[in-house]
Design a binder for these strands. Structure first.
Lengths: 337, 337
DNA sequence: AAAGTTCTTGCACGCGAGTGCAAAAGCTGT
DNA sequence: ACAGCTTTTGCACTCGCGTGCAAGAACTTT
């Protein structure tokens, strides 16, 4: 008979009764900068705690125009860097009161259904950290109902309806190219990721341009259709096998670490060559494994935490004037090049 | 002036007017097994499509007792296996109409606030795929409001208020132990993960018991406080350095692959030893990297897809009688042992 | 101490849809 | 063509809270 358990659901009304105020005052007590006297708030909070009350965000989202919820669309789970991004993003979001809806868009050919689904949950923004989208989808999405913000994270997009938060790929790649040239490498092979129309990484083009500027010809390149170390290993293997023994590259520059890890594995275990003595390797992202004693990969680190925090700034900002932003990262030199 | 854009928000009422039926009929049309005539449904769907209507799940969650939303608490982003689990879980959930709230619980010392937050969003279940929780938290959570189901995924829990969906660690570990013994290894070192009270993996104990049964003494073991290859590498290095040169183990059995990868790196690059010739290594989980030419790790694969599908079954089941379940996986023999 | 300010608090209405039941419509057999 | 039955449709009420404004309380000023 003792009321040891909390009732099924405590509403603001219950707390109001307990504290001897109105329901609206209860809600004010939970709102950051509401006009309420300190002692009333204290009284309400005490009552709330005693009853085990917490505001229902679901109802709040329905009543107001905001939900403090974002959808995170991911279409690439083979790239270890995704795990790092997920960690940084969820941490930044959560620390500032935002929740994250994780949407796996791997098994659909476009993101439209996922965007639709996000709108059904009244998300305040949709964040894309993948590649599978094009301008058609974006335009459709933007024309549709209830679309607040569409953020492309860690990838540049030229679409004007989109907010892109990314590292400055061009500057980063030029720095990489300069380093490679300075170290005396002259026979590069560039391993690029999937071709995409929108949300392009300018890395391959920039590297090619830098090489062209310096030596008058573009470097060779290969494309891997997924950011997957295992696939990258296979394709690199096929590419190198097709070459004459004397015609090996002296450096392999990769669009990101996911590709670079596979490349290193192949170089060592399929060809029995040494990194960097026979072939050097450069990556991009600085995934945790890049630092392992096995890889010691030279790579480029994006300021992910800073970028994630800026993303939350964007979510909280009201004006929508040119929120795109590029960040500068840092070349991390290890043993692979 | 042309109405090229959809209005801000289309409600069921708008569709009802357009289709010449009542709002409730519109909702029925969107409900899987509602009693509605096929032609009425078709009429409604046509009108809905023309207007760009989709039901508002936020409002639905408020009005009904279900939200079709689950919270996924993760406290360990260094383990590459987490990415695989996230992929499998979100795919299974999404394909059957469930959305996933990803909650990062890394930077808090207990899961209570996260559980509270989940309850604020009216999730139908909370799924834990980490380690940071104990019985106190669980009990508090369960006593509180609006807690539907608490699922421990990929980890065994003996707490009766909890539904545990996991591989049969005991059977798996016995199989591993048997393999190690059959291959003639006699000086094992066991690398365990963090100590936890609840949600225990029985792997270390089972391996020790199996060894004890056979040889009359327990194997040595070390604990790594996080499932992180880099940390595992460090601790393994310290452990092996403390040994006399002639006293090295001939096999290192790891609680999971995250630990095993670090172990292999250390063996090779810090001690210049060969795997498996000098020291063999066994893991658990079969992460993607385990198959790479670099590691070729012998490990144990959990039937994750099957487990994820069962999880959705659990979500959709109404009776709550003993939903715990153990799955059998498969020993994957590669070159590391 | 009265009038003028500023800070607090209360309230009607709406957000968009689910539940359970009752009314209406469709169907069967004779 | 009508009773009897089944399927389909409509509706009052509810879920828990936000918005914007107006009334009330508390504090200043001269």
């Amino acid at each position: 008979m003792a009321k040891t358990e909390y009732p099924d659901n405590v509403t603001a009304d219950d707390v109001a009764t307990a504290a001897g105020v109105s329901r609206w005052t209860v809600n004010r007590a939970f709102k950051k900068d509401a006009s309420i006297s300190p002692k009333t708030r204290a009284k309400v909070m005490t009552a709330a705690e005693a009853l085990g009350y917490v505001p229902d965000l679901s109802a709040a989202a329905l009543a107001s125009a905001r939900s403090n919820l974002v959808a995170l669309l991911v279409d690439d789970f083979a790239n270890p860097h995704k795990l790092v991004m997920l960690e940084r993003l969820t941490r930044a979001l959560r620390s500032r009161g935002w929740d994250t809806l994780l949407v796996n868009t791997l098994d659909r050919d476009d993101t439209t259904p996922a965007l639709l689904n996000a709108s059904q949950r009244r998300v305040d923004a949709t964040i894309l950290i993948g590649i599978q989208f094009n301008d058609d989808v974006l335009n459709a999405a933007h024309g549709a109902r209830r679309f607040k913000k569409l953020i492309i994270f860690a990838r540049t997009s030229l679409n004007p309806d989109t907010i892109s938060i990314a590292v400055d790929d061009e500057a980063a790649t030029r720095e990489i190219a300069q380093y490679v040239i300075d170290r005396g490498y002259r026979r590069p092979l560039y391993i690029a990721g999937p071709h995409t129309v929108s949300a392009h990484l300018l890395r391959k083009e920039t590297f090619a341009a830098a090489w062209q500027d310096r030596f008058g010809h573009a470097p060779e390149s290969v494309s891997v259709p997924r950011y997957d170390p295992l696939l990258s290993a296979q394709i690199t293997q096929a590419t190198l096998r097709a070459r004459k023994p004397g015609n090996m590259p002296d450096v392999i520059v990769c669009e990101n670490d996911a590709l670079a890890l596979g490349v290193m594995d192949t170089i060592r275990h399929e060809f029995g060559l040494k990194v960097p003595d026979d072939i050097a390797v450069v990556g991009f992202d600085d995934v945790p494994q890049a630092a392992s004693p096995n890889y010691r990969l030279t790579t480029y680190r994006q300021p992910l935490t800073e970028m994630a925090n800026y993303l939350v700034d964007v979510l909280e900002s009201t004006d929508s004037t040119d929120l795109d932003r590029k960040f500068l990262g840092q070349l991390v030199i290890r043993d692979s090049a």
